[in-house]
Amino acid sequence: MENATLVPVNFRISQQAHIMLNELTDMASRETGRTMVPALFWDEEYDEIKKEMVVRGIALGCYYRDEVPTRLLQVIDGITLIFAVSPKQALHFNGREIDYRDSRRFFFTD
């Protein structure tokens, strides 16, 4: 994490996604007994059998806040988070809004 590069946040978060990020982060903090910070990723991998890229999209993780370099924390729409993507992966998020609905996952609304 010390060698990670800051990729500036380039997206918006809907009200529902904001609520869920807070709830999930609070739950993780209670379960671990330590303050957590959410991290948004881009989940994709190359399938060697099918010989194609499998894209799952937006993924959520959490890190212990006291183990994250302050320079990697960003505030977007009132949420402090880590945007844990490469510059190339950040293009998927550019100018879009992340939402959360009954599907129990984060997705782009536009």
Rank of each mutant, 00 (worst) to 15 (best):
residue 1 M to N: 10
residue 2 E to F: 08
residue 2 E to G: 03
residue 2 E to T: 10
residue 5 T to V: 13
residue 5 T to K: 14
residue 6 L to A: 13
residue 6 L to G: 05
residue 7 V to A: 06
residue 8 P to F: 09
residue 8 P to L: 08
residue 9 V to I: 14
residue 9 V to A: 15
residue 11 F to C: 06
residue 11 F to H: 03
residue 11 F to L: 11
residue 12 R to C: 09
residue 15 Q to N: 09
residue 16 Q to F: 04
residue 16 Q to K: 15
residue 16 Q to I: 03
residue 17 A to Q: 02
residue 19 I to R: 14
residue 19 I to P: 01
residue 19 I to C: 01
residue 19 I to Q: 10
residue 20 M to A: 05
residue 20 M to C: 00
residue 21 L to M: 12
residue 22 N to F: 12
residue 24 L to I: 04
residue 25 T to A: 08
residue 26 D to G: 12
residue 27 M to N: 12
residue 29 S to T: 14
residue 31 E to K: 14
residue 31 E to T: 10
residue 32 T to S: 15
residue 33 G to F: 03
residue 35 T to Q: 14
residue 37 V to W: 02
residue 39 A to H: 06
residue 40 L to S: 02
residue 40 L to V: 03
residue 42 W to C: 01
residue 43 D to M: 06
residue 46 Y to E: 01
residue 49 I to V: 13
residue 49 I to P: 00
residue 49 I to T: 07
residue 51 K to A: 04
residue 52 E to T: 01
residue 52 E to P: 01
residue 54 V to N: 04
residue 55 V to N: 08
residue 56 R to L: 10
residue 57 G to N: 07
residue 57 G to T: 08
residue 60 L to S: 02
residue 60 L to M: 11
residue 62 C to P: 00
residue 64 Y to Q: 12
residue 66 D to N: 14
residue 69 P to S: 09
residue 69 P to E: 12
residue 70 T to S: 13
residue 72 L to D: 11
residue 74 Q to P: 11
residue 74 Q to F: 10
residue 74 Q to M: 09
residue 76 I to R: 15
residue 77 D to A: 05
residue 77 D to I: 04
residue 77 D to R: 06
residue 78 G to I: 02
residue 78 G to H: 11
residue 79 I to G: 08
residue 80 T to R: 09
residue 81 L to S: 11
residue 81 L to V: 10
residue 82 I to E: 04
residue 84 A to F: 11
residue 84 A to T: 09
residue 84 A to I: 10
residue 85 V to Y: 05
residue 86 S to I: 05
residue 86 S to D: 08
residue 87 P to Y: 04
residue 88 K to A: 14
residue 89 Q to C: 08
residue 89 Q to G: 07
residue 89 Q to A: 15
residue 91 L to C: 08
residue 91 L to F: 07
residue 91 L to E: 15
residue 92 H to G: 03
residue 92 H to N: 14
residue 94 N to T: 01
residue 94 N to W: 00
residue 95 G to Y: 07
residue 95 G to L: 08
residue 95 G to W: 05
residue 99 D to C: 06
residue 100 Y to C: 00
residue 101 R to P: 02
residue 102 D to G: 15
residue 102 D to L: 12
residue 102 D to W: 11
residue 102 D to Q: 14
residue 103 S to C: 07
residue 103 S to N: 14
residue 104 R to D: 10
residue 105 R to D: 05
residue 106 F to Q: 01
residue 106 F to R: 00
residue 106 F to K: 00
residue 106 F to Y: 13
residue 107 F to V: 06
residue 108 F to E: 00
residue 108 F to D: 00
residue 109 T to Y: 00
residue 109 T to H: 02
residue 110 D to H: 10
